[in-house]
Design a protein around this nucleic acid. Structure first.
Lengths: 215, 215
DNA sequence: TCATAATGTTACCAATAGTAACGTAAATAT
DNA sequence: ATATTTACGTTACTATTGGTAACATTATGA
């Protein structure tokens, strides 16, 4: 099947992804150059440009390979579902590729919108849509009222995390932050049931670590 | 006074700031070049580099000139104070210099931390600290309990706004978003008093405009 | 065996950040 | 007045970078 002609060396794709991840982690997105990427990947510029149109195109592939295999969430309670959503978001937003690469990548696709279309359709959209699924099930169980705006709930769950990722001087995304954001979402939903699992799983009891806040 | 020697032409500073603001608005931060900046400002590269170490250094000056003259906030109620905070934040986060420039600038200072130190000390820090002042006064009035974490309240007020600024496909920061964020902050503070001013001033009744959300 | 397409190397172009050199102009200090 | 100091604006330059072109070579499918 596939096509005629010499096939691409499969390892080169992985080598490039690994090299980009390392360089973003070490230097931050704006300092990553293609020359360094291909050197560290043990390949060359033409091979790179046969696979990707630009560095910007690599990042979605990188995120998919590291965080793209999410299974469905259905713990049976709204609290459990939101805790699980945030557990995954915490993992995403503490990945150094994200903490040091996301802002620069977002700026790139703002300046070159065509490069971000696929990310929007394949990554962002489904994740925001999934909040809707969780809220619909919770409403069907009678845990919350119908009619909540899933977009706003997603904002509450993700906004504070993104803020801590992109703003300098703020503590990394930690268990305290995700637990608080779940509480805020539950408040916005008017949820009045048991929340003990939030602090057990989210672990508010853990000490906040790392850099202190600015304010 | 000052020093000996020919003084800098004062208009050049303003011309550069204006040119950078225009180019960020038109093209997005990553596509702004120094050559274009100085051409549009009617000056030249040496004059630019006598004033700024890099493009990254211009942005804080730009923000200060557009949003730096904040007067103190003291409306007499916690609700009024938070509404006013968010009114200003809405103005900030709908400025095209911010919506098209902030992510790229944040990425730059992540990669070159020394360039962001002054912004952190002079802009971010004081704003987060101001939340503390507002909460302390509210606690002294008995509107809320003591001991609230002003960092978390600031996260709730600013996180969703930043998210809508940097994530592609989300609606611009509007009155609905700021009103909701004030409600979330009041919920987190356990505030049980009158909130009618939130929806009057924040105007939840306004229709949401512009691009719809992705999810 | 032939067509196809990727391999890796070398070389190249165009755009860009940032600096150097330099004669000129405008301020202060004596 | 004169000397000193510093910004002015022009030209030119270096180094880095993104991105392509050309090319001989190698691996696959038909």
């Amino acid at each position: 099947m596939s096509h005629a002609g010499r096939p691409r060396k499969p390892s080169t794709d992985q080598d490039i992804l690994r090299a980009v991840a390392e360089l973003i982690t070490e230097r931050g997105y704006p300092r990553v150059t293609i020359d360094e990427v291909v050197e560290r990947a043990g390949t060359n510029k033409p091979a790179f440009y046969r696979r990707f149109r630009s560095l910007t195109d690599v990042v979605p592939r990188l995120l998919a390979s590291r965080h793209g295999t999410d299974e469905d969430i259905d713990t049976g309670t709204i609290v459990g579902d939101l805790v699980e959503v945030q557990r995954r978001q915490r993992r995403l937003f503490t990945d150094p590729v994200v903490t040091r690469g996301f802002a620069g990548w977002l700026a790139d696709i703002d300046a070159h919108p065509e490069r971000g279309a696929s990310f929007l359709a394949e990554y962002l959209g489904p994740r925001r849509a999934y909040t809707q699924v969780i809220l619909d099930r919770a409403a069907a169980r009678g845990e919350i009222a119908e009619g909540a705006d899933p977009g706003w709930i997603a904002d509450l769950l993700t906004g504070p995390l993104i803020m801590h990722v992109v703003m300098p001087g703020l503590a990394p995304v930690d268990s305290v932050l995700v637990a608080r954001s779940v509480h805020a979402a539950l408040d916005a939903l008017g949820y009045r049931g048991d929340r003990s699992i939030v602090d057990l799983e989210g672990a508010v009891s853990e000490q906040r670590s790392g850099a202190p806040d600015v304010g």
